[in-house]
Design a binder for these strands. Structure first.
Lengths: 340, 340
DNA sequence: CCCGCCGCTGTAAACGGTTACATTCGACCG
DNA sequence: CGGTCGAATGTAACCGTTTACAGCGGCGGG
């Protein structure tokens, strides 16, 4: 169809398994077996085929292979967006394990609305062997209906009925930070929220509230935010104006903490001398901020690694794995003596 | 092979174009035409096929389609690594345009050595329609030999013989920053280098040196670095110890500038009061640092966008497109009066 | 000496689409 | 009213693999 019926090497045309077989004086089956290390092959034949293939610069056609084996050796990663260090780290975690397992990664971000997600799920058949889906903003179970059956799916930071999922201990981490601030003597602790419909954000707020209440502090000081630096900046602006001014701020993620830090500095409010600041995620640059940011370490790369492993061999056992978070104390909250 | 010869819908088995055709009472050709909007189809038929396909939850098998059309609607992105905001932004730029063009993205990072690259290039046949390669550390022309012919390739931040490439004006940007520092009165301007074999890094150093020399300053103060925050931190540590101490520091990228800023703060060296600091890239958080970082804006997302477009319709015309960089002055270098 | 078996290799049928070419069927025109 | 033409659809070859099954020597055992 695309090639003249007389099989003359059309120079630029790509070389197929048939070309290699002909040149090596064997059948296509033998060449296939050599490349897949299947079945018994006489060493001499093996070497010859390999040599010929090398010389002809043959490499197997992935799509043809997929069609025949119904395996693609690639897995799909769909994220709500690709912006920021958090997602960058997630992808990296998945990527390194994928490579070590011989898998490829097809990523796609910016899936805020349902229609987009649907389009993506339509395109998976014959393209990926499994899916890692991170969609904290949406009700996870509603979108599951859209994807074709038989595709293993692992949810990241979201749960849904029977689907395997990997989540992080958001509430526990948030409680730990808040308790840390309380232990330092703070009573007026502001919280910068994440996006309203974001599951992670909601759990972190839950942890914050629980710790606040357990300490007998009645009013939670919550400020809206949406996980971006800008929103953190804006929230901090409003926090400093508030009177009595909060003595500590806990941002629901590091990006917002960075924004807040920027706002504080711009207004001459010193951290931690004038106000304590904490974040969540422990993205790589957190320790390079000035002052280094006290935050909650979530094993981001590990998150990626585990999800890849789970999607490759879906275990019928534990369907929900929750990763521990750990409080990482640096200098942005000061120490006990210097807090009031 | 995988399915009993009697075509009985095995429930969980995926539905093929043949199943849809049978159910709709048409031939596979018609179904195919409906899905591809090819050829004349009677409206009634069109609707019926679509309805049946919808009801049966049919979606075309990507691999089969690729095999037949020899197009995958996927393009590959290979990066040296995935760490940090810079790469994150590049991917994002490519991703958004890819989606709008109906293309998928298969990414892979961590390709420092040649063998890894080779393995990747082996795997492209039948998997992608084109390749966007960013490999500043390696001699680009040497690795081109490895990939199969016929695959369009666009190089990012690297050039090689006849290959189309998109690069940024590194030298120009570096010259602009350095001149800016000189104009502010600085004479002892330190430069934190990038990785030794990195092309971008080399060009930035060239720009720095040119500006220094043009101003009649004879000795360039260069400190090693490798584009990581850590290396910037380390370099800054050595810079403050040097006497006479430099009055300004130009880091070859923002990540190192962040590291340097951290080191300065840890030692009580104030920026910009005690020392001026500038970076390169203008990654998103640069403006949220304290103080906001003066840097060189490179249109990262644009870089991704253009490369995607170029790989989709390779123009035989201009093979090397160089993107302008612009000096972005913030507060990390102070203003004229307060510098000495 | 014959037979069965085993190690190696070849033949050909899938996999699930696309599309060149053939076919059918009205409508329309001379 | 027969022929032509175009629109709508069907048939089947083909894309490049994998793999079940068949074939074919040679060898050892009975």
């Amino acid at each position: 169809m695309r090639r003249a019926s007389t099989r003359l090497a059309t120079a630029s045309d790509s070389v197929t398994i048939r070309d290699v077989a002909a040149r090596a004086g064997v059948s296509v089956a033998t060449v296939s077996r050599v490349f897949n290390r299947k079945g018994p092959i006489r060493p001499a034949t093996y070497q010859r085929v390999l040599a010929v293939a090398e010389r002809m610069r043959y490499s197997p056609h992935a799509a043809a292979r997929s069609l025949s084996t119904s395996r693609t050796n690639t897995i799909g990663v769909v994220l709500p967006e690709l912006h920021g260090e958090f997602f960058s780290e997630v992808i990296r975690g998945i990527d390194v394990t994928a490579r070590s397992r011989g898998y490829h990664l097809i990523v796609s971000g910016s899936h805020s609305d349902r229609a987009e997600m649907r389009a993506v799920f339509q395109a998976v058949r014959g393209r990926v062997d499994g899916l890692i889906v991170m969609s904290p903003d949406l009700d996870a179970s509603t979108l599951l209906a859209d994807l074709p059956g038989g595709v293993p799916v692992v949810l990241l930071n979201a749960t849904a009925d029977g689907r395997p999922a990997i989540t992080i201990d958001n509430a526990g981490g948030a409680r730990a930070v808040t308790r840390h601030l309380i232990k330092l003597g703070h009573r007026r602790i502001a919280f910068i929220c994440g996006p309203p419909k974001n599951g992670d954000a909601a759990q972190r707020r839950r942890g914050y509230r629980a710790a606040i209440r357990a300490a007998g502090i009645d009013d939670a000081l919550e400020f809206p935010g949406n996980f971006t630096e800008e929103s953190g900046y804006e929230a901090a602006r409003r926090i400093v104006e508030r009177s009595p001014r909060p003595t500590a701020v806990f941002a629901a993620n590091d990006a917002m903490a960075i924004g807040a830090l920027s706002a504080f500095n711009a207004r001459g409010v010193r951290v931690p001398a004038d106000i304590a600041l904490a974040g969540f995620d422990d993205i790589p640059i957190a320790r390079f901020l000035s002052p280094p940011l006290t935050t909650v370490k979530v094993p981001i790369a590990e998150l990626g690694r585990r999800s890849l492993e789970l999607v490759l061999n879906p275990s019928p056992r534990k369907v929900n794995e929750v990763l521990k978070t750990t409080l990482t104390v640096r200098q942005s909250c000061g120490s006990e003596e210097e807090s009031r």
